[in-house]
């Protein structure tokens, strides 16, 4: 069975029209199997796009894509809690849970586990599978050694395993909005300044080294993870899906390149070369997969 290629939830706050047009283009042109929709990062952003889901879902489904709704990762205040319960109640929707509050609502229902729920080992995976989880997108900090073990376990359990292979990596969540803070505001008074950063607000060290990217309450890696080199081995071991995290670049092309590497039509080197021409404004990393500093790039020897 060939490995699925999936588009993760858009992590950034794009204007509604841009976001809708993005998904329409994905629906019509991108060669991906599943598209995850939903505001994962900030509950305050969610209302802007809520009335678009029906239309976007229809367009994606008409384009042959499966749609999964991905829940908010950090659920704290009443509005967050309502957002999660509303999403879970969406008729006929398959849900990806990103925190334990979603799991509470999903009791007795088949669902997916997102990368913000900590599943690091076989025991956690087996326990959650027993509660109805049928697909797991793993935490990006897991080294390949653990990913391979979990992929094996997943095959025994008959569940799917997904690994993020493209895009900035989520490194931390906080209660505080760092976008607002950079503009001397607080979260309640943010005026949605995060809309100015379609790929996140870059943080440099005091000596000017590119370091991190801020996305509201989320802190991301500066480099984009790129696991083209590692994909063949992961697929071989039973990883059933690869996740591309959307960025403000030619994502249709990114999908095509990753699809090419996944199917063996392109070599990883050809894929990486192609990506460098897709308008990505940062370097690549794959350190986590190799069990070293996550920001590093380890070239295939």
């Amino acid at each position: 069975m060939s490995t699925e290629l999936n588009l993760g939830p858009l992590l950034f706050h794009w204007p509604v029209e841009q976001k809708r047009d993005f998904y329409f283009r994905i629906a019509d042109e991108a060669e991906v199997d599943t598209v995850y929709l939903g505001e994962v990062v900030c509950g305050k952003r969610a209302p802007f796009f809520e009335d678009q889901y029906a239309e976007v879902t229809k367009r994606l489904t008409d384009g042959g894509k499966k749609v999964v709704l991905s829940t908010l990762s950090e659920v704290m205040i009443d509005k967050d809690r309502q957002l999660v319960s509303r999403m879970v109640e969406t008729k006929g929707a398959l849900i990806e849970a990103n925190d334990a509050s979603a799991l509470w609502h999903l009791e007795g229902r088949a669902h997916r586990i997102g990368p913000y729920v900590n599943v690091y080992n076989e025991k956690s995976m087996a326990w959650l599978a027993g509660k109805g989880a049928e697909h797991f997108c793993l935490n990006p900090e897991l080294p390949k050694s653990a990913v391979l073990e979990l992929a094996q376990q997943a095959q025994t359990l008959g569940v799917g395993v997904e690994v993020q292979v493209f895009g900035r990596i989520s490194l931390a969540l906080s209660a505080r909005c760092y976008h607002a803070r950079a503009h001397d505001r607080v979260k309640d008074n943010c005026q949605f300044v995060c809309e100015e950063s379609p790929d996140g607000m870059e943080l440099d060290t005091v000596d000017g080294d590119a370091f991190l990217a801020v996305n509201g309450i989320q802190t991301l890696s500066h480099p984009y993870v790129n696991l083209m080199q590692e994909m063949p081995e992961m697929a071989q071991a039973g990883v059933s899906a690869f996740r591309l995290s959307p960025h403000d670049c030619d994502m249709v092309k990114v999908c095509r390149l990753f699809g090419g590497v996944s199917s063996g039509r392109l070599s990883p080197d050809e894929g990486i070369h192609g990506l460098q021409e897709a308008g990505i404004a940062a370097s690549f990393c794959n350190g986590f997969s190799h069990g070293v500093d996550g920001y590093r790039w380890v070239a295939n020897s």
């Binding site: 990762s73 969540l173 069990g291 500093d293």
Partner: peptide, 10 residues
Amino acid sequence: RCSLTNYVTG
């Protein structure tokens, strides 16, 4: 939910 240390130290 923080991998910042891993990001810079492994």
